[in-house]
């Protein structure tokens, strides 16, 4: 495995963890989040800060995951108060609050971010394989959740919150669980990214990043683990395959979002097995 392939595998793995995490919140549980990059950033900043202090990789990863998950549950609390469109704008706001905070903190490097982060203690190839293993574990977790009792309950909440409540589902608990799992995974992705890039900048975690992750989920098919898996790999590889696609990456993402929603709101997964009309 060459260094180039290793870096590709690492980026794909990190994007997979991000997209599958968002898929649990938005796809499984039906809660729109436009601020996923903030939790990615929370994990990354936590891990980077601790790594600079000399903490070992397992500890920093765990801390990044816990931090993002904890804040994620707090943000999830807003989903109990506000619904749907309010939630979309609120989560978008979380992203701006996170960025606005980080940019002004001298102890987090301000606009310049954190650099000089120690390596993971592994070579590029084993580290890429470690990231890939994490991504596979997240995919397996997603499938397990989807097929478990919890997955059915998420489905019920996503479909009709009030009906779910009527049949005795504790809607609040499940929403918070979805937010907690999804954002904690984003934190893990952030921690993994830190040791891969060895430098973090605030702009890596901006609104565009949140939208990029959302694009992967939506194009794959919101709620479909395999669809999201495939589309994340395809969309991450796209800029590598063609130079033009790299220059116009955002333009292509935007156009794809519009076209997919117009012709197959279920994404790629919706094309494969067309749902019965509801």
């Amino acid at each position: 495995m060459s260094a180039y392939i290793a870096s590709l595998v690492s980026v794909i793995g990190i994007n997979l963890i991000l997209a599958l995490g968002l898929n649990i919140i938005t796809g499984f549980c039906g809660q729109v989040s436009l601020g996923h990059a903030a939790f990615y950033g929370l994990g990354a900043y936590t891990a980077a800060y601790l790594a600079k202090l000399g903490a070992p990789l397992p500890l920093t990863l765990l801390a990044g995951t816990a931090m993002a998950g904890a804040i994620g549950i707090v943000v999830g609390l807003t989903s109990l108060r506000v619904r749907h469109d309010f939630l979309a704008v609120t989560t978008m706001g979380i992203g701006f609050v996170f960025l606005g905070f980080v940019r002004k903190q001298k102890w987090l490097g301000g606009e310049l971010g954190i650099s000089g982060i120690p390596g993971p203690g592994l070579d590029a190839v084993p580290y890429a394989l470690l990231i890939a293993a994490f991504a596979m574990a997240v995919a397996a977790l997603s499938l397990w959740i989807k097929l478990s009792w919890m997955g059915f309950t998420f489905d019920a909440v996503a479909d009709d919150e009030d009906a779910a409540r009527t049949v005795g589902v504790n809607v609040s608990t499940y929403k918070l669980t979805a937010f907690g799992i999804g954002t904690a995974l984003a934190g893990t992705a952030g921690g993994l990214y830190v040791y891969f890039a060895r430098i973090i900048l605030p702009d890596t975690f901006d609104f565009v990043q949140s939208i990029a992750v959302l694009t992967m989920v939506v194009i794959g098919g919101t709620g479909s683990v395999w669809g999201v898996f495939a589309s994340t790999i395809a969309l991450t590889l796209l800029p590598e395959v063609s130079r033009a696609a790299a220059d116009y990456r955002l333009l292509i993402f935007g156009a794809m979002l519009m076209l997919v929603m117009r012709f197959s709101p279920g994404g790629l997964a919706g094309l494969v097995h067309r749902r019965r009309p509801a």
Binding site: V32, H84, D85, A88, I211, L214, V218, T222, Y248, L250, L251, F253, G254, A255, M256, L257, M258, M261, R262, P265
Partner: peptide, 26 residues
């Protein structure tokens, strides 16, 4: 952009709107 998808849930037009915004900006 909007008229053809009005019958879908609110999520669909919102995503279309985000896509359209990115396309315009680029």
């Amino acid at each position: 952009a909007y008229q053809p998808i009005l019958h879908h849930s609110a999520f669909v037009p919102m995503v279309v709107s985000i896509g359209l915004f990115i396309v315009m900006q680029e």
